[in-house]
Design a protein around this nucleic acid. Sequence first.
RNA 1: GGUCCCGUGGUGUAGCGGCCUAACACGCCUCCCUGUCAAGGAGGAGAUCGGCAGUUCGAAUCUGCUCGGGAUCGCCA
Length: 599
Amino acid sequence: MYKDTNCGEPRDTSVGEQITVAGWVNRRRDHGNLIFIDLRDRSGLLQIVFNPEYGETAHDLAQSLRSEWVVQVTGKVVARLPGAENPELPTGAVELSVTDLVILNRSITPPFEVSDDVEVDANTRLKYRFMDLRRPRMQEILKLRHKVTHIMWDHLTEEGFTQVETPILIKSTPEGARDYVVPSRVHPGDFYALPQSPQQLKQLLMVSGVERYFQIARCFRDEDLRADRQPEHTQLDFEMSFVHQDDVMKVVEDLYTRIVKEAAPDTTANGPFVRLTYAEAMERFGTDKPDLRFGMELTTITETAATSDARVFQAVASSGGSIRGFVAPGCGSYGRRQTDDLTEFAKSSGAQGLVFIALDESAPSIDALEDEHIKSPLKKFLSLDVIKKMATEMGAAPGDLMLIVAGTDKLVNTVLANLRNEMAKRLDMLDPKRLIFSWVYDFPLFDWDEELQKYEPAHHVFSSPKAEHMEYLDTDPGKVIGTLWDLVCNGSEMGSGSIRIHDKDLQTKLFNIIGYTEDQISDRFGQLLTAFTYGAPPHGGMGLGLDRFVAMLAGEEAIREVIAFPKTQSAFDPLFEAPSRIEDQQLEDLHIRVVMPKS
RNA sequence: GGUCCCGUGGUGUAGCGGCCUAACACGCCUCCCUGUCAAGGAGGAGAUCGGCAGUUCGAAUCUGCUCGGGAUCGCCA
């Protein structure tokens, strides 16, 4: 070993010890005859002192040291001079008085300072990711991520799960996201696809009798990137046989509670997890992934609003749409600028407009509202009675701002859900250290696709319809609720699971409903359906996004921050400069000819 | 594919039509300095302003296109 002690370890109890440490020069303070070095390794910082009286050669050598050089130093741990302690550092009571210095490697001037305090351009960070990852914050995130996956392995192993690796080279399944494909050399013209998830494979493992499978699985999707989307992401994928919905949920609830407690002790999670049906979530929050850290729940006021003289309300109500809204507490004093902002925000979510009613805080009560207490662009169309009634229904009080959107159900929900989150942000109601988990369950199995005029799977095609809804499969598939649920936390979907279909005929029926031909079914799902005919156990499971979870525990917005070597928004890796051209010989071996796009 | 924001020495920013042969901080180089910890002091090097085209007597500053980064809608779980 090059070292017998880590930089972050020495304490005042270590005084007098002879130690050897090795690491990177974090910073150098050269006083001429006295040189201080902050030496950094994975454990932290240690102040090294070069004093010619204790090591003349070492001191001479130390004059050449620069940032990020790699050195090995031997010396004695000494207490710092009284008054020279540094309470900022865990090792701040002591320092290493050096007798020997070995320069293990030098560094050219770094592209940016290795420190949490500097903000560096994303491209530069990724190009020098190996430097970026030296920053303490990034080291901390790498360790956090490891801790999370370690607990997953431990916990699931304790619960009787077996980890099984599934292939990365598998078959393209054109529905869902676009596949990444890999050409085959031995089968000219054929391609593998990288898995979007190991869904079919884990179900096959259930047929194989594994009963409890898990994998921390890489999943690939060739779609446009976002702050929370990378071309490859990692899922905790697991599947269980002979279980019901609650059994699967319990595994996750126990696991995630434990992870938050052990891996992110400064963060709190609720327990038990909140349970909401899909219908209830949509009704109360307008979204299937509500942020439950704050209230501002939605209210439907279609009937009341329709009795007003406002033509927008009348038109929407008579055409079967809805009028809904929520109350932003204490925002009744918002000025023109702020309400304009909100209207603009609503429009960017697709709304035609935003109706707001500001109630002045000087009003003694809702019943005692007078004309002068009300500010609203629709004021002249809304009688005092209608406003009072709306305020009562929505639970508004003097001093509040009522935000109302009218339109089709879907649009109203989308706009209000976004607006609700926006208001929470503005009102500073979002504490990232507070995690509120919820189960949103009883999702419909199918969505009606207006454009294609056909049913689409709401989540995925393998989820089992509720037993009591089987009859609707033939009569009205849109009404079928699946044994299908999401794990939601602070407004983000953390994962999704279901009890799967394990019957060939039922699975085939579902494929038919979403319009797959016999050929498509056998081509894409033949292996699964065949397996089902050999005694498939009832089973269910989940896929949970690891990157997003770790980002949340770390308090990061972008999953890029919690992936060691991520890609840019154009799916480019600036470090390796991937993707890249390949040799003509490689193309030839793969039977591939490249046709560049025109223009 | 759409919309929006950003692109100035190594890093982060200022400058937003002539005062810019570009300013500041950090970093880098040289020298001084035995108690600093974002050390200090003195001096120095380093960018033609992402690229191209245009407007103008004159562009880092205006316009168009383009490239790159980021946010977001579509897409995607």
